[in-house]
Amino acid sequence: MNEIREVSGINDTQTYWNAAALGTLLLKRCIGTGKVFHYPREHSPFTGGRTEWVEASGLGVIYSCSLSYRAKPNYCIAYIKLDEGPIMLSNVQHEDLTQIAIGKRVRVVFRPGIDGRPTPFFMLAD
């Protein structure tokens, strides 16, 4: 975590993107309950109490997915059930999108997103 620049205040979510730039998926943990959640925010949505950043394993399983046929190129939106517990919205990327299915294991990969910055996507973990 040393190399990840933590940001507080109004731009606190920048910490997440600073970590992404270094190839790390960060999640927030509710200190009161120990429960890890996504998307990150300053307070715990479970208790209103304090939170801390934790490094995710980057592994999970596809909870649901849907391939968009009208978009060119096609893309696959997905909810990923992360090994740490929470479900996260993302895209699963694969050369053959029809191989993507619910229940398959995935791992995080960082690629430029819509705005060019390194963004967590997922690929099939084999």
Binding site: T13, Y16, W17, H38, Y39, P40, S64, C65, S66, L67, S68, A71, Y75, I77, A78, Y79, L89, S90, N91, G113, I114, D115, T119
Partner: peptide, 17 residues
């Protein structure tokens, strides 16, 4: 910022259901 990069639209979010 946590969802827009993945292009959720009406159809694909219902598709996931």
């Amino acid at each position: 910022e946590f969802e827009n990069p993945y292009r959720p639209v009406v159809t694909n979010v219902y598709g996931m259901v």
